[in-house]
Amino acid sequence: MPRNVYTPSNSKNYYLRVTIDGKEHRESLRTTSKRVAEKKARERIKELKGKAERGETDWLFHSGFTGFYESLDHYDEDHGWSANTRKRYQTSLRQIGVTLMEVFEERDENIELAGAWEIDLKSISEFVAMRKDAGASIATINRDLTAFNHLMSHIKNLGWVEMNPVLQFEKKGMKESLPDIVLPTDEAIQKLGRRAPGNLCFFPDFLDATGGRVTEMSMIKWADVKGMGHPVEGHVTLTLRHTKGGKVRTITLRQQAIDILLQIRRSNRSPYVFWNKTEDGYYRSASNLFWDYAQETEFGARLHDIRHKFAIERLMEGWSVYRVQRYIGHGSVKTTERYYFRYLTQEQQVIANADGNIGL
């Protein structure tokens, strides 16, 4: 089977995954036939390459979002919305943009590079869940969904998506269901690391020791690490400056992470911890690289799932939910609870929900 065509564990359909000019495209080929999928994949890749060569930015959700938002600056006879209605929709759209950025950040993906088809039913469900986490009322969420519905109808009318996922969600109701998290084993993480080249062989273990997102950890520099003169837990910190939300945070490294750093050879040419010899100096496409390695080593999960493993294990060993939330960089402690408490016993939840000092 071509490397660009695969079947996710939660779907019978074949999917396309391809990177063109640094942007990853991942979408359903809407067929269970291998032969049809391969043909569709070749045609779609050719189409995407043509768009990239022409510098076209359509089919991106960000492009559709911007076009619809700007159209609300002026009265349009097609919809006939008043100035107050258009202003209210723009307010909701700003909140939609911020929240979707958080949704995609949690997936270790960039909303500005997402195709319109990637805003699916799962994305809408996560949007609603995060608005609830932020304390928004049902009435406010419904107002946001009204604007969201018009936005996705606009994108559907452009021919970029086949179905409006907001309408799908409204038929389903406010019930949210999170997919099961597939937690990689320690053995699988080590096997994945052995497949990686250069100092990337340490990268999966480092994610397991820190719970960091792939992108933010791939861009850390030695200058961001303080206290290695006394490499003992409690004395070494790491400042994360390239988080997708732009919020700089500093964490105290556990001994497991410190021991990994002690094994990494420093480069005279690059300031990055996980460096390479490209003009960027770091592994810009770490997620894509490890996706390929994961198929070869039968990893059975996403590289990003190592982050979930870290959070669940820390909660199980007695860290408070407040500490885990701050450490891994969730925007809300309720998001941490929603993702991980379903994997804890009642006793573990009581400990995690203590006053915030447990494990500190």
Rank of each mutant, 00 (worst) to 15 (best):
L158F: 09
F169I: 03
T252H: 10
W222T: 03
D208Q: 11
T239Y: 04
L192P: 07
L262I: 03
P179G: 14
H230D: 14
V214A: 15
F274I: 04
S270H: 03
M163P: 00
L238P: 08
D205P: 00
V225W: 11
M228P: 03
D186I: 10
R241M: 10
I264W: 12
T215H: 13
N157W: 07
P271I: 03
T185I: 05
L178W: 07
S177Y: 04
Q256K: 15
Q168R: 11
H235T: 10
G227N: 01
Y272C: 04
N142Q: 15
G246A: 09
G234E: 06
I141S: 10
T278K: 10
H242Y: 14
F169S: 08
T185Y: 01
T210Y: 03
G159A: 10
M228K: 02
A257I: 06
F148I: 03
K171H: 12
F203Y: 14
G245D: 13
R254M: 11
M219H: 11
I138W: 06
I258E: 07
E216G: 10
N157Y: 07
K247G: 01
A223G: 02
R195I: 00
T243Y: 06
N199E: 08
V225I: 15
F206H: 06
R265N: 08
P204L: 12
M174H: 09
T146P: 00
P197A: 09
L262D: 12
V214I: 14
G245M: 11
L178F: 09
P204R: 09
M219D: 05
G227T: 06
L240G: 06
I251M: 02
F274T: 05
W222G: 04
Y272W: 10
G229K: 11
Q263D: 07
T278G: 13
N164S: 12
D259Q: 14
N157R: 15
V273E: 08
G159K: 08
V248P: 00
R249C: 01
Y272P: 02
R195K: 14
D144C: 11
L207G: 00
V236F: 03
H150P: 00
R269S: 13
I141V: 12
I189G: 07
L261A: 08
T239R: 13
R266S: 05
V232D: 01
L253C: 02
R265L: 03
T278V: 09
M217Q: 13
L207M: 14
R266E: 13
W160C: 05
I141R: 06
K277S: 14
T185M: 02
G212P: 06
I258S: 06
I155S: 07
A147K: 08
C201P: 00
R254N: 08
M217D: 01
K226P: 00
F203Q: 08
I258A: 09
K175C: 01
N149G: 08
H154C: 01
F202I: 04
G245Y: 01
E176L: 09
A147V: 07
